[in-house]
Amino acid sequence: MARDIKPPHSALAPPQLARALIVIMASAPERAALIGDMEEEFAQQSQRSPHRARAWYWRQTAISAPYLALKRLRSEQTRRLGVALGATLGAFLLIHYWDIFIARGAARGFAVATGAQTFFLTRSVYLLVQMTGVSVAGGAIAALTFREQDSFARNTFRRLIPAGAIILSPTLFAMIAPADHYDLSFRLLQLALAVPALFIGARIAMWLRGRYR
């Protein structure tokens, strides 16, 4: 195999730190060829002057860094990560403001309309509207981050669950350190409903897009 070919023992090795920087910065498709090129030129230069060869290697690392970093930032992998983080943040804000303005507003409206006599029903309306928002957030995450070539289960495991864990983390954190007025059972109920709500939202979004029908 190609990797088994070792350089001769007498050959001077390139600066390890510079090489590590190149390995980190270079994108996967060109990484091996790029490092191979640098080692080839380094080996040739080190026969004339090892000191100059090391200086050349460092200089190449320094002047290549901006190009490699920029290419890395523009890569598909980075773009996908940016979209995933953006979708998660967007979904988080959506749930937060939906909760404040729509779910609570609906619950208050229902309470006023029914004379605030039915606490259980008011909370049920609040939960129903809130979970609709969670479903919308799940749908948005699915629409923005799910990959066409992956199955629904794989997409859910790799994209929806991590995003959902971030979105629901304030509720989890509040359960670990509850305030005095905290209603643990209600939070547990919210959390138990939020997980399937995210899943249902993702499923509906994918169904609307014509995937996994």
Binding site: I5, P7, A26, P29, E30, G36, D37, E39, L68, K71
Partner: peptide
């Protein structure tokens, strides 16, 4: 390599992997 990669994406350039040598640290 950034330029070569861009030109390859545009369809102006093609590439193939060659042989690995000891001089290149075993890289092709």
């Amino acid at each position: 390599y950034s330029t070569l990669s861009r030109l390859e994406e545009k369809g102006y350039v093609g590439s193939r992997i060659g042989k690995a040598t000891a001089e290149r640290g075993g890289r092709a």
